[in-house]
Design a protein around this nucleic acid. Structure first.
Lengths: 226, 226
DNA sequence: TCTTGGAAGGCACTGAGTGCCAGTCACTGT
DNA sequence: ACAGTGACTGGCACTCAGTGCCTTCCAAGA
């Protein structure tokens, strides 16, 4: 039940903090200074943010909640991978709803190792969420590492799309990029499930090295099936 | 040119630190206490370790160097994915060469959030390494996110294999698990390259006796071709 | 034995993060 | 209008991680 008023001051503090960090350098700005510049007491800064580095990620817990809600409201009959993909798209859109924040943050994380670390941690929280969701929902006959692998894969593509956008200064279309990546993932998954369950996949190919590689795989798969 | 003697004291400090952390709890043990218990000055602890949490990961920079060397000595004609897989296996083996350390560390990371965060960061360093290697070596016509995705995927499987081993108290065979996972990855990659390059005709068939007859024929044919 | 360079000790300092208590402000029912 | 209640804020003091600087020690070589 965090009120609008509180969220506003939180973002206000974050903004002045980032401005200071960009101007003076992260290490050279004390929390004290941030507090003064925001007309708040030092103690209150630590009420809104757990640590100094969190000042740069005011939006993350919110977004984590968003993703969680997305996953929860996915009915038991929807494909779990699709659910995760949908949640990831939602997350990306949420990122893009604050373009200034994301772009300024990038200028900081690129230079300050401590903040880059923090960013990695934030992503890990998100990955952990989708991972446990997949572990619960994926068919039990799937390979044990599939949930882990999928979660990592999807997050990596999410990060790449967002990263390209941010590195390009906002010129690319990250949503389209994400969609393309997710398509790629879906195809990968279809193939692996094809090989592991009943319906069969056949290919008519020219005689090239690639074909021979495929053929070898196919032969092995056929051996397994028969 | 770190001498053997220095490394020995480093591991000695780390061991006493972990023992203390396990007994008293991470937050309740000051670096001062670690220093005293190791017969070293507080200042010297910070000469061997950059921070308190690094006390639990004395082996990581070493291993990072190991992986880097593995990747560097991969000739330009070896398949980059194979090179990364080999380096990952090497890394896993290196982990397993200190089973006590890994198992005790797990007891800590499971309970202390700060240490789990640190572990995530360590993995990220490793992922960054393989990611940039793949970016350099992968064919330029591959999808842009492929290096990112592959690096994440391989690391996730690495973590899963090691995690299962550690959670099972050392009863599983993580090397075999990793190999199985890497096989899976290799198959995924073969498929995706098939779809992106070679021309082909696809058929989706039900699992019937006829299909199986076709499959048998195909298998035999493949055997003849190879 | 003397010297010299690298490692360790010791000390003082900054600054992040926390616990505690008192003040303040908004919101409620009367 | 007013007292009360509860949540937020300010201010203070404290702990402890991490760093800079100087001194001391030790080991290897001339």
């Amino acid at each position: 039940m965090t009120s609008r008023r509180i969220l506003e001051t939180k973002y206000r503090i974050s903004e002045t903090a980032m401005a200071l960090f960009l101007k003076e350098g992260y290490a050279n700005v004390t929390v004290e200074a941030v507090a003064e510049a925001s007309n708040v007491s030092r103690r209150s800064v630590f009420r809104h943010f757990e640590s100094k580095d969190e000042l740069v990620f005011p939006d993350h817990t919110e977004r984590l909640g968003l993703v969680e809600r997305c996953l929860l409201e996915a009915g038991p009959d929807t494909d779990p991978v699709d659910a995760v993909i949908a949640a990831t798209e939602e997350s990306l859109r949420d990122f893009l709803s604050r373009p200034e924040l994301v772009l300024r943050r990038y200028k900081l994380t690129r230079v300050v190792p401590e903040l880059r670390k923090r960013e990695v941690i934030e992503h890990e929280r998100y990955v952990a969420l989708t991972r446990s969701f997949l572990r619960d929902r994926l068919p039990p006959d799937a390979p044990s590492f599939q949930s882990v692998a999928l979660a990592a894969l999807i997050d990596a593509i999410h990060r790449a799309a967002l990263g390209n956008w941010v590195r390009g200064g906002g010129t690319t279309d990250p949503v389209a990029e994400l969609a393309a990546g997710m398509d790629w993932v879906r195809r990968l998954m279809v193939h692996q499930s094809t090989f592991s369950t009943a319906p069969l996949l056949l290919a008519l190919l020219p005689d090239t090295p690639q074909t021979r590689r495929v053929l070898t795989t196919l032969k092995d798969a056929a051996e397994d099936l028969l």
